[in-house]
Design a binder for these strands. Structure first.
Length: 864
RNA sequence: GGACGUUUAGCUCAGUUGGUUAGAGCGUUCGAUUCACAUUCGAAAGGUCGCAGGUUCGAAUCCUGCAACGUCCACCA
């Protein structure tokens, strides 16, 4: 043994993990450049620079690193490319909040663009270092030499290039349309950045004026100051004759409103009054009608009555201008009442869109912004971006696990509207467009000449993260990395960013490279607390992964967060799971400690393999096959469960105990430990590497090869019969309350020498009969037959302190169960429908079981 | 309003195309006390797989309906 100092009784993770990580990194194992083999790449979803490591990250890192280590050991040229995300809106919102907490009223105005951006940059750089270090603590074998950032120079170049190409293809356009506007954030938001919240509201039913022919309803009456039409269903008999007419009403706006009655299929005649007041400036659907009318050549007006500051505009009328929307609503309703126009006022529950970062209600406001067109045909492809997004998944070029998410994705693709790209934030990629008087320049570089002003807006943060799979590899240059590692092999993400991110990566990659960004997408759920609640600061249920690592070690955290999870489903996390993981790690440690010392003490291998040897090797072979298949399919939980079963039950509880008796196991123990360390490595990289080092193995485990399936097909039934017999004897002892010191006398016969040795060495067994007298159980007169399984028969000596009555009830119940089983199986087997239709194998195994059950029954019968 | 998910042992969850008498970990009960490991060892108890129908020789698994919980989407005027 390599000295007891290095092999303490319990494994101390905290003392060794950092050193091991440093040694991996120094060895160059993370970097694929020195490796050959089939490329295998995973792009790490870049965590936000503002974030600190949480359990969600821990899960993701565990998934990715387990996969990449597995593939590396299989000899692939593996790249796990790490990075961080500047997270435009999230970061700016956070820093602004911090500055305001320090006493600033309006950081943007007080600091100005340059200084505020600088403050955000400082904060981002600091946080970035933190999160990167935390990811290393998870053991991630990422290639840090390729570390990327969504807001660094290389990524900025890719973003500008993409924007310009899309603009030149006519996919990006500048347009005056209704946007989602956050008053608090003073910026647009995309449809995906809106969170719908249910809340109570009032719906008012009214007319614009006494003689207006149609009644309408609204929860936002103040916007009615900007109404320019009333839409009805074209076939609605009540309103049909009014279609095309225009009515002038005075509701107090700056100018009297000209309300045109228009027909629109999307109006539900059954709903409410069957008529809808159209406010093109402050509703996305109404704006769509506005555009439809324009296209038809029957235009309606558009009157913005709410400004970007969230206050009513001049056009809302002198009485309203400058009021908040709430104040304006009150005033307008009062006016309706006064003029006897209000017919109804009802309480309803309404779902309103709020900004997911600033939290305020999103207003629909018309503005000139930059948009990405989902429906425009790309000249060189003859397809739209929507087509490209659809085809990648419909054709299963991108495979999604679990596949139900593919359906959700496709539904979403069909309903995507044009993507509003421009943000009025300062932290982000500046839009590569310059203006001078009436001129506009769109290019990757600033134009020559004086007087050019760059567009002040920045790009939606998802524009840069959408290009992550290839911008990280050097695009737009045709780099070797790009050729080698794109499309990437495996991508994992939480379902909550499926739309936000996956769609955009597919869009960008298909557009820029005519390639899918990844082949396999693994969707995971949310890590929740033990009660199923989301972890959050406000609920005070946070668990810091770093605390867990400090106390239990990274391996324990990794295995506990991966086990008991299924793709796409949420999982619960609590400390008992980690303790369990820690215990497992410690078990592996002690198994290794024992094996190494056994080998040193008893180095001469036995000449022949015993039944137990054949058994453990066969089970090891099966395990290797199983784990390989499961990891291939990203079924981490079931792979690790099987590994645990082998390690703890098969190896530690049975084989090692037998090895103590049989001796001469050097060769087999070495083989088993070696294979087991390799199989565990992707899950438990630290402890396995540490043991590998202590047992003087060649090289590092991280770059060792994955075990191959060697021999297969050895029968394990004989051994397992023996094992069951031992369990049965133990049960009898336990249930009969046999005192610890007291030996119970068993009689057993077997033709197998091995069984003799093992059973005889159970310290509480006293051999009664002559081992050479291989009598059948029913011939053992002095004993009480316990079991007769296969080639082994065992009896218990009645001279011992055994309470027959106590045991009898149990046996009778078991007999009854057996009888039921036998009868039902016999019925099945005599059923021609079954025997003719079921596969032969099923029928055969059933009749085998029947014979076994009968034998067991006969043995049991002798006891009562 | 639409869609999706979950429902299996006291708890947390597996259960791969339908095929033995449905599994694991934790917890519980009983027993062991250090010869690799008490972060341990041995043994046991515990489930009519949410409910009701259907398909099938055979259903936890497929179909229909219902219920509870959860999630997402939506232009409920």
């Amino acid at each position: 043994m390599s000295g007891s100092q290095e092999w303490p009784k319990a494994y101390e993770a905290s003392g060794v993990e950092d050193k091991i990580y440093a040694s991996w990194e120094a060895s160059g194992a993370f970097n694929p450049d020195t490796r050959s083999g089939e490329p295998y790449s995973i792009m790490m979803p870049p965590p936000n620079v503002t974030g600190v490591l949480h359990l969600g990250h821990s899960l993701e890192q565990s998934i990715m690193d387990t996969m990449i280590r597995f593939q590396r050991m299989r000899g692939k040229k593996t790249l796990l490319l790490p990075g961080t995300d500047h997270a435009a809106i999230a970061t700016q919102a956070k820093v602004e909040k911090m500055l305001m907490a320090e006493g600033m009223k309006d950081p943007r105005r007080e600091l100005g663009r340059e200084k505020l951006v600088e403050r955000i940059r400082e904060f981002a750089e600091e946080s970035k270092a933190t999160i990167i270090n935390q990811i290393r603590k998870m053991g991630s074998s990422a290639d840090w030499s390729r570390l990327a950032y969504t807001f660094d120079e290389d990524r900025n170049r890719a973003v500008r290039e993409l924007f310009v190409r899309m603009y030149n293809d006519g996919l990006i356009y500048r347009g005056y349309r209704v946007v989602n506007w956050s008053v608090k954030g003073q910026s647009t938001a995309s449809d995906d950045e809106i969170e719908h919240v249910e809340r109570p509201a009032k719906i008012y039913t009214f007319k614009y004026s006494k003689d207006f022919p149609i009644t309408i309803a609204s929860t936002r009456p103040e916007t009615k100051l900007g109404d320019t039409a009333v839409a009805v269903h074209p076939k609605d008999a009540r309103y049909k004759k009014l279609i095309g007419q225009t009515f002038t009403v005075d509701v107090g706006a700056a100018k009297p409103l000209e309300i045109k009655i228009i027909a629109d299929e999307s109006v539900d005649p059954e709903f409410g009054t069957g008529a809808l007041g159209v406010t093109p400036a402050h509703s996305a659907i109404d704006f769509a009608m506005f555009e439809k009318q324009k296209a038809k050549g029957e235009p309606i007006n558009l009157i913005p009555v709410i400004g970007p500051d969230g206050k009513m505009t001049q056009e809302a009328g002198s009485e309203y201008a400058g009021l908040s929307v709430e104040q304006a609503r009150e005033k307008f309703v009062a006016w309706l009442k006064k003029n006897d126009l209000l017919e109804k006022e009802e309480e309803i529950v309404q779902s309103v869109g709020t900004s997911d970062r600033y939290g305020d209600v999103i207003e629909a406001i018309p503005m000139t912004q930059w948009w990405l067109d989902m429906n425009k045909v790309i000249p060189s492809r003859g397809k739209t971006l929507r087509d490209l997004m659809r085809e990648a998944v419909v054709g299963e070029h991108v495979r999604i696990t679990p596949d139900r998410f593919a359906k959700l994705y496709l539904d979403r693709v069909e309903n995507l509207r044009d993507w509003c790209l421009s943000r009025q934030l300062w932290w982000g990629h500046r839009i590569p467009v310059w203006y001078r008087a009436d001129e506009m320049h769109v290019g990757t570089e600033a134009p020559q000449g004086d007087g050019w002003e760059q567009d002040p807006d920045t790009l939606d943060t998802w524009f840069s993260s959408g290009s992550w799979t290839f911008s990280t590899l050097g695009w737009p240059d045709k780099t070797n990395d790009l050729k080698t590692f794109h499309p990437t092999s495996f991508m994992q993400m939480g379902y909550e960013i499926l739309y936000l991110w996956m769609m955009r990566m597919i869009l960008m990659s298909e557009y820029a490279l005519e390639q899918i960004p990844f082949k396999d997408v693994y969707i995971h759920g949310i890590v929740r607390d033990e009660h199923g609640k989301k972890f959050s600061k406000s609920s005070g249920n946070g668990i810091d992964p770093l605390d867990v690592i400090e106390k239990y070690g990274t391996d324990a955290l990794r295995i506990s967060i991966l086990s008991g999870t299924t793709p796409g489903n949420d999982s619960r996390f609590y400390m008992e799971k980690v303790e369990n993981g820690r215990n497992l790690v410690n078990k592996i440690w002690n198994i290794s400690r024992f094996i190494i010392s056994t080998i040193e003490a008893d180095p001469i291998p036995a000449k022949t393999q015993t039944l137990a040897d054949k058994w453990v090797l066969q089970r090891l072979t099966e395990l290797t096959k199983f784990v390989t298949e499961k990891l291939d399919a990203a079924q981490f939980s079931s792979a690790s469960e099987e590994l645990r079963e082998f390690t703890w039950t098969i190896l530690a509880d049975w084989y090692l105990e037998i090895a103590k008796v049989e001796k001469g196991k050097t060769e087999i123990l070495q083989k088993v430990l070696d294979t087991l360390l390799r199989l565990w490595h992707p899950f438990l990289p630290f402890v396995t590497e540490y043991i590998w080092g202590l047992s003087s193995k060649e090289g590092k485990l991280i770059t060792a090869t994955w075990p191959k399936v060697e021999v297969d097909g050895m029968s394990v039934a004989k051994f397992e019969a023996l094992r069951d017999m031992v369990t049965e004897m133990r049960r009898l002892r336990a249930e009969q309350g046999v005192e610890a010191a007291k030996k119970v006398e068993f009689v057993f016969t077997t033709s197998d020498e091995f069984a003799n040795t093992v059973v005889e060495n159970l310290e509480w067994v006293k051999r009664l009969s002559n081992a050479s007298a291989f009598e059948r159980v029913d011939a053992i007169t002095e004993g009480w037959p316990v079991t007769a399984l296969g080639h082994i028969s065992v009896g218990l000596n009645l001279a011992g302190a055994v309470d027959l009555e106590k045991e009898k009830a149990k046996i009778e119940k078991e007999l009854a169960d057996l009888e039921t089983y036998i009868v039902s199986t016999e019925v099945k087997l005599s059923n021609v429908d079954f025997t003719s239709k079921a596969p032969e194998q099923v029928v055969r195994s059933m009749s085998d079981k029947l014979e076994e059950a009968k034998a067991k029954r006969d043995a049991l019968k002798k006891r009562v």
